[in-house]
């Protein structure tokens, strides 16, 4: 896949065409995270397209044992995004689904497997892309206060997203990062797990909330909407109305007041 090249007088500018995978949760619940991602990718000099027919990466079905539905949705993603130079999602979970699980999903579909693998190699979680491909130097956002960062499981353990968000947060004027204990431990969301095993899920979320409270910060920042809803939901139920729960795209784009 060769990025298309624009000849502009004597200078050759390479414009990379990104397909923004909005994710179903961002589309439904926090659209402004999608716009923040858009803004950041454009700040990195990319051309961003948003395929309008996109819906879901197939993870809910895949992780619940409904492989058939998952495969159908994976096919749809493949068709909609394979003409892009890169696919970027503001979610380690969805990017992880495409990047690490599509090869398994297509494993007995030889004709599509190769195409799927090519897509995987070009699929990135937002901060990973901004740091390692987009080489974003300056971020638009500012933030006045202390934050802690929660490492979402898929981003961390499937995609190795650990230093990327931190190095980007370090570029935000006014923001001070304070690590909490057990930042790498699951928040208890786990998709359908949060509904099916609500009590256990809440118990795990409580542990995360304890660690956030102990860090005593203005906001907890993270890269996945699933974890956001879970952590925010538990913090509020515990009576903490103050600690903000923010997606990293919002913070970096300067859009964190919603």
């Amino acid at each position: 896949m060769v990025p298309h090249i624009i000849h502009h007088s004597s200078i050759i500018v390479q414009i990379v065409r990104i397909g923004l995978f909005v994710t179903c949760l961002v589309d439904l619940i926090r659209p402004h995270i999608g716009f923040a991602a858009l803004k950041l990718l454009e700040a990195a000099g990319c051309e961003v397209v948003v395929p309008q027919r996109q819906t879901c990466c197939g993870q809910p079905g895949y992780n619940s044992g409904d492989r058939k539905s998952a495969l159908a949705l994976a096919r749809k993603v493949l068709a909609e995004f394979e003409t892009c130079d890169y696919v970027v999602a503001p979610s380690g979970s969805c990017a992880g689904m495409i990047r690490t699980h599509y090869p398994d999903l297509f494993s007995d579909q030889p004709a599509e497997l190769e195409r799927a693998k090519r897509l995987c190699d070009r699929t990135y979680e937002l901060t990973d892309f901004l740091v390692n491909v987009g080489k974003l130097e300056r971020v638009p956002g500012t933030f006045n206060g202390e934050v802690t960062y929660h490492d979402s499981c898929s981003g961390l353990r499937e995609l190795g997203v650990k230093s990327q968000p931190r190095s980007l947060l370090a570029k935000v004027p006014g923001l001070k990062l304070k690590e909490m204990d057990e930042a790498e431990i699951c928040c208890g969301f786990g998709g359908a797990f949060a509904l099916k095993f609500g009590e256990i899920s809440t118990h795990i979320a409580d542990r995360k909330c304890d660690n956030i409270a102990a860090a005593g910060v203005d906001a907890v920042v993270l890269g996945d909407l699933g974890c956001m809803l879970n952590i925010e939901g538990r913090l509020r139920r515990r009576g903490d109305m103050k600690t903000k729960v923010l997606h990293i795209a919002e913070v970096l784009a300067g859009d964190s007041e919603g």
């Binding site: 609500g198 809440t202 939901g233």
Partner: peptide, 18 residues
């Protein structure tokens, strides 16, 4: 209930991204 017995559910903004 599995969710809301122990947690609130943060409400959507109201319009979808698309």
């Amino acid at each position: 209930g599995g969710w809301t017995n122990g947690r609130d559910f943060p409400a959507p903004q109201g319009k979808t991204f698309r």
